[in-house]
């Protein structure tokens, strides 16, 4: 077999695996979010479709969305309207290229992995602005403007929060950062960085309390107000894909990725495969983000920007300085 065919074969296999993972995620997380939110709100959630826990609910949703009419409103900016769902979906999948699911379970271990993540996730906002502008709706335009402001305000602390683990591990490769956490997870020495990353990550995800660009009680549905059916479900897929992506990156950077907890004895570590550890941590973070979403009210746009620029940015800078100061101490202690 020629080498290019092998490469191509692997590429296709990996791509389909990632795509499968993303789709499965969406199916699972839709169900999980509904059940989880229902429990928080003292409801029972879906339970009829797929008794007894309603596990087929997301399948039913998918079939509903697939069978809906493809409506394009009359006066939209057609090209942008059609492109926006694709533009939002592609980067949501591309992030997974560098996510280390296990010691060898990674599509491509880029040596600038973390920069790649920061670059790719920013695309989401471009798609939101496209969708908001194209729909020719005032609510969606306001939503797009909010999203743009939010992106600028939160991208900076997000990247600065990442610098802490990068300094400690001495590499930009995500796999390298995970391997560096064998002795100790970085959340122990980087609690501030973790919190900043999670907060800014939630803002990037447009999850409550930062879901300003799709604030349903103010802007009806925000940027996807004129979308329906499959086009809308692309936004939905991208949202859940990004949710898992942010949790996975946070796991990788701060929770030791696929590493078992460092304090467990070696015998126990061997029992559970790394990918299970990774997924368990990721879904734990996903659940935490959902928990926050269903508890807090929404902030206002000026308060959001204040929080981003005047609080998170200084804190993340302080975190970098602190990391630099403590680095020799940590090395002497043998923690890293």
């Amino acid at each position: 077999m020629p080498a290019w065919l092998v490469t191509l074969g692997w590429a296709v296999l990996k791509a389909s695996l990632i795509l499968g993972f993303v789709l499965f995620n969406a199916l699972f997380l839709v169900w999980w979010e509904r059940k989880f939110a229902a429990r928080i709100q003292s409801r029972v959630g879906p339970q009829r479709t797929g008794r007894p826990f309603g596990y087929l609910q997301s399948m039913a949703d998918v079939f509903k969305l697939l069978s809906k009419e493809d409506v394009v409103p009359a006066r939209v900016d057609r090209w942008m309207y059609v492109l926006a769902p694709i533009v939002i979906f592609v980067p949501a999948v591309l992030v997974y290229v560098v996510v280390p699911f296990g010691p060898n379970l990674i599509v491509q271990d880029l040596n600038i992995g973390i920069l790649y993540v920061a670059a790719v996730t920013s695309f989401t906002m471009i798609a939101i602005v496209m969708a908001g502008w194209a729909a020719n709706n005032k609510y969606s335009v306001v939503s797009a403007m909010r999203a743009a402001a939010q992106l600028v305000a939160y991208e900076v602390p997000l990247v600065l929060a990442v610098i802490g683990p990068v300094m400690l591990a001495g590499t930009l490769s995500l796999q390298g950062i995970v391997r560096a956490q064998e002795g100790l997870w970085y959340i122990v020495v980087q609690p501030l960085g973790f919190l900043v990353f999670l907060t800014a990550g939630m803002a990037e995800l447009n999850r409550a309390p930062f879901d300003l660009s799709e604030a349903e009680s103010e802007l009806v549905a925000g940027y996807n107000i004129e979308y329906s059916g499959m086009r809308w479900s692309f936004f939905f897929l991208a949202e859940f894909s990004n949710l898992v992506a942010v949790s996975a990156i946070a796991t990788t950077l701060f929770l030791g990725g696929w590493q078992a907890p460092w304090f467990l004895p070696a015998a126990v570590k061997g029992l559970i495969p790394p990918v299970v550890w990774f997924l368990a941590k990721t879904y734990f973070l996903v659940t935490v983000i959902m928990w926050i979403r269903w508890t807090l009210p929404r902030v206002r746009i000026d308060q959001l920007l204040d929080f981003g620029w005047k609080f998170l940015l200084p804190v993340s800078l302080a975190n970098i300085a602190l990391t630099g100061l403590l680095f020799p101490v940590l090395v002497r202690l043998g923690w890293i």
Partner: peptide, 16 residues
Amino acid sequence: TALDLGAVTPFLHSFR
């Protein structure tokens, strides 16, 4: 009010 401010959970609790 909770719903208007984006918090869904208090809404359902008060309805209970």
